[in-house]
């Protein structure tokens, strides 16, 4: 049996497509979402004593796990928190603590399928970008000059020395929203003005020299194989810094691409070091033909690579899961 692990509100076409292929190949599968094991859903326990090490988490055996996520932390104790007569500081601390508790609980839950095939291993999905860059550099990949700093002075020096600079989150690029507002953690360009508008000391942030690009590359990695796509974002100034700023009128040209073998070998080593058997890798090819590694998203999207390149990654993923479900 295959287990699809995802947060309950995560639903997109790529998921549905993989599920369609699983059904088509007559695979048996279940879903698992953290939502169903916290304030809602089934009874469960994980027991440990000198004589006992027992988990009642699953009544089934799952050989093959597709890990796409588990839960979003925001939803716990919503009403309690809203009704708390307390300072914002306390509430923030409470939320953070709850987040830590859930993370620890989840890692015990994940233990129940530790011996199964996992695509990818949830333990490997929480790495920060800076650590990955460190590793990539060690392996011999080119990386953008990077810095974490809290200092306007340091940032200005960095900017003077390297010219164009961008900032992005160390963890995930995300946005979240409610009725009144949306919050982005995204890639953005740093200008001299924006530096001047900063206080002398600020929240430690991640900066990178902007890498001139000929083309952007997205490579979906699956069990040793690369499915690479070139994005011609340069044709369109609207998407120059980050192609996620879509232009819907004239979408970027996306075409299949073949990475040089030696780059693939290094990336394969990197994925091995990170204990990842799948992930979405971002690279840039510079006008002087260097390949610069940017980041890996272990549970990144793949539909946007699969469709324009006709790779049928949805079926490849389904087949990989089935193959390990023996």
């Amino acid at each position: 049996m295959i287990l699809i692990c995802k947060s309950h509100d995560e639903n997109n076409e790529s998921h549905e497509d993989v599920i369609d292929w699983l059904s088509y190949h007559n695979a048996k599968f279940d879903f698992l979402s953290g939502h169903d094991y916290y304030e809602n859903g089934n009874d469960w326990s994980i027991e440990l004593s000198n004589s006992k090490n027992e988990s009642s988490f699953f009544s089934q055996e799952y050989q093959s796990i597709w890990f796409r996520g588990f839960m979003r932390y925001r939803s716990h104790f919503k009403e309690t928190i809203n009704s708390l007569d307390s300072t914002n500081d306390n509430i923030a601390e409470l939320r953070w603590r709850l987040g830590q508790e859930t993370a620890k609980t989840n890692s015990q839950i994940f233990k129940s399928f530790e011996d199964s095939y996992q695509l990818p291993n949830p333990k490997s999905t929480k790495v920060d970008k800076f650590s990955i860059l460190r590793l990539a550099e060690k392996i011999g990949l080119q990386i953008p000059i990077s810095m974490i700093s809290n200092s306007r002075k340091k940032l200005l020096e960095f900017y003077k020395k390297h010219g164009d600079v961008i900032t992005k989150p160390l963890y995930e690029t995300v946005y979240f929203r409610d009725e009144s507002s949306a919050i982005f953690f995204k890639t953005d360009k740093i200008t001299e003005e924006s530096i001047k508008s900063l206080p002398e000391k600020f929240f430690p942030s991640f900066f990178q020299r902007y890498v001139e690009k000929d083309i952007e590359l997205r490579s979906f990695y699956l069990e040793g194989k690369f499915y690479t796509m070139a994005i011609f974002s340069q044709l369109d100034p609207q998407t120059k810094t980050d192609f996620r700023n879509y232009n819907t009128e004239k979408p970027n040209r996306n075409v299949p691409y073949l990475l040089p073998k030696e780059i693939e070998t290094k990336l394969r080593n990197l994925m091995k070091e990170l204990n990842l058997n799948t992930g979405s890798i971002d690279l840039i090819k510079t006008p002087d033909k260097r390949y610069v590694f940017l980041e890996v998203n272990p549970t990144g999207q793949f539909g946007f690579v699969s469709k324009p390149c006709n790779y049928y990654l949805e079926d490849e993923i389904a087949k990989t899961l089935i193959q390990h479900d023996q």
Binding site: F232, V255, L258, K289, N310
Partner: peptide, 25 residues
């Protein structure tokens, strides 16, 4: 019209593969 581009590395740009399949009977 952004239908094509100039390149000096045409070997890096493979043709679109022509496979077709669909997960329905």
């Amino acid at each position: 019209n952004e239908l094509g581009f100039w390149t000096d590395e045409s070997e890096r740009f493979p043709e679109l593969n022509m496979q077709w399949k669909s997960p329905e009977h």
